[in-house]
Design a binder for these strands. Structure first.
Length: 466
RNA sequence: GCUCCCUUCGUCUAGCGGUCUAGGACACCGCCCUCUCAAGGCGGGAACACGAGUUCGAGUCUCGUAGGGAGCGCCA
């Protein structure tokens, strides 16, 4: 039997980080076992579902590269099917119509809570389900009365539940919509899902869903419930204090592959390995190796990972992402050096593409801000003027403009003036960038371009004098 | 309140009864390298929540306790 997993978000917001990891695990499990990955949009909550959210989720999935093999299916397009299955169940005596008023239900709940019991429907309409004028009934599932439900969760292990704990849940609302616990089961059966991989918060729903599978005479899939992802302080991720949307991570300058790598290691590991290519993830991932406990999202480690990819990827693969960030920062990539060169010069110095774009600005636009302390310390230092003049002359005479040539020119200046690199690099750096921090001096000068470098040195000499 | 789940360095984790005086990574600290900032190299501090039991032997198995989380809707 071919493995089929699914990711089934409800479109009430963007794709968040927890959902992204769930999607990743579903996708990896399917790929690893040569199966299919299905995308299903659970949009039966028509109060909160929006089309913008559907698009946001699709965008997030695409950015991460989590391609689905089937779908997206939409639950709102399957309403007839749910109704049909529910009616069949009523006819077969596996479900029944319930006319109980909300008032009665609320009273029941309050009473149970007051007695220290778990709120549960008393099954009144199992036997007294007479139509009440003016009341559109709901359909309730007739849950087994005794016995236990046992399932072997692939991450949690064996979970056992007494049917005493379960009540007759509503599977079909009076407004004609199915409820979640019913729709998922019908969908997962119809879509032949073999492995249900989802968030921890659904463990409690699993036993009642299994009972529905049994009632429907369908094979029960394997379940795997993923632990939560908490924020740095161990609190629930909230958009108030954390970046939770996947696209926020793109905007913040992370590579999709780096995010994937970070996410896959949050709750799963393969020995001591930290860096995984997508292919390695597919080869090595096994849902059974996922940890049981919740983990915290650590932006610092994500940053480290992102830099690993920045440093080791082929710069040409990074260029499109970097270009995107340059433009986002209001920088015209055509107004300066080859972005691939800039990436190589900066990737040891930043953790994100956003920082990289900011630092790259000096080569694409005129210096906007001068660090006055740097000017004072290096431009107005003894001998600085002579260094700048000598360097300018050497640079101007350079027949070809490469980092190597620039480097040789600087060495020549050092020899000529009999001073160390420190005395030359810092004044030049300030002249070219306006600050005392930048990549190695030959790259800093090289990236400015020959004529631009000369112009900036002239400006710096004037500035130092004035 | 009730039910279910979780618990190894600050964080992510390795560990599947002896090889654990508990390993790796991020972060932190120190040294080296050095034209600035980084990156890199080397080194350091840092954890089995607690208590019983099973066993020749427990981080690893069982049960309690404590702490944390989830669920208990005509939401998903």
């Amino acid at each position: 039997m071919t493995v089929r997993t699914r990711f089934a978000p409800s479109p009430t917001g963007y794709l968040h980080i927890g959902g992204a990891r769930t999607a990743l695990y579903c996708w990896l499990e399917a790929r690893h076992r040569g199966g299919q990955f299905i995308l299903r949009i659970e949009d039966t909550d028509r109060e909160r579902s929006t089309e913008a959210a559907v698009r946001a989720i699709l965008d997030g999935m695409q950015w991460l590269g989590l391609q689905h093999d089937e779908g997206p299916y939409y639950q709102t397009l399957r309403m007839d099917r749910y109704r049909q299955v529910a009616e069949d169940m009523v006819r077969a005596g596996k479900a029944y119509r319930c006319y109980c008023s909300r008032e009665r239900l609320d009273a029941l709940r309050e009473e149970a809570m007051a007695k220290g019991l778990k709120p549960r429907y008393d099954g009144h309409c199992r036997t007294h389900g007479e139509p009440v004028p003016g009341v559109t009934p709901v359909i309730r599932f007739r849950n087994p009365d005794g016995g236990t439900v046992v399932f072997d969760d692939k991450v949690k292990g064996r979970v056992e539940w007494s049917n005493e704990e379960l009540d007759d849940l509503v599977i079909f609302r009076s407004d004609g919509f199915p409820t979640y616990n019913f729709a998922v089961v019908v969908d997962d059966i119809d879509m032949k899902i073999t492995d249900v991989i989802r968030g921890d918060d659904h463990v409690n729903n699993t036993p009642r869903q299994i009972n529905i599978y049994h009632a429907l005479g369908a094979p029960v899939p394997a379940f795997a419930h993923l632990p939560m992802i908490l924020d740095k302080d161990g609190k629930k991720l909230s958009k108030r204090t954390n970046a939770v949307g996947v696209m926020e991570y793109r905007d913040a300058g992370y590579l999709p592959h780096a995010l994937l790598n970070y996410l896959v290691r949050l709750g799963w590991s393969h020995g001591d390995q930290e860096i995984f290519s997508v292919q390695q993830m597919i080869d090595l991932f096994d849902i059974a190796d996922v940890n049981k406990s919740a983990s915290r999202f650590d932006t610092e480690k994500l940053g480290w990972l992102n830099q690993q990819y920045l440093k080791n990827d082929d710069p040409l693969e990074i260029v499109p992402h970097f270009d995107w960030h340059l433009r986002a920062a209001g920088i015209d990539p055509a107004a300066g050096p080859d972005p691939a060169d800039v990436i190589v010069a900066l990737r040891d110095r930043v953790q994100t593409l956003k920082e990289m774009a900011e630092r790259a600005r000096i080569w694409y636009a005129p210096i906007e801000h001068w660090d006055e302390k740097a000017v004072q310390k290096h431009l107005r230092a003894d001998g600085a003027a002579a260094v700048l003049a000598a360097a300018r002359a050497r640079f101007a005479a350079l027949p070809s403009w490469t980092p190597e040539c620039v480097h040789k020119a600087i060495e020549a200046v050092a020899a000529e003036l009999g001073v160390g690199m420190g005395k030359i690099a810092q004044p030049l750096r300030v002249a070219i960038t306006g600050t005392q921090v930048s990549p190695s001096i030959e790259h800093t000068v090289y990236l400015a371009g020959q004529s631009n470098a000369l112009r900036r040195i002239d400006d710096a000499i004037a500035r130092a004098a004035g």
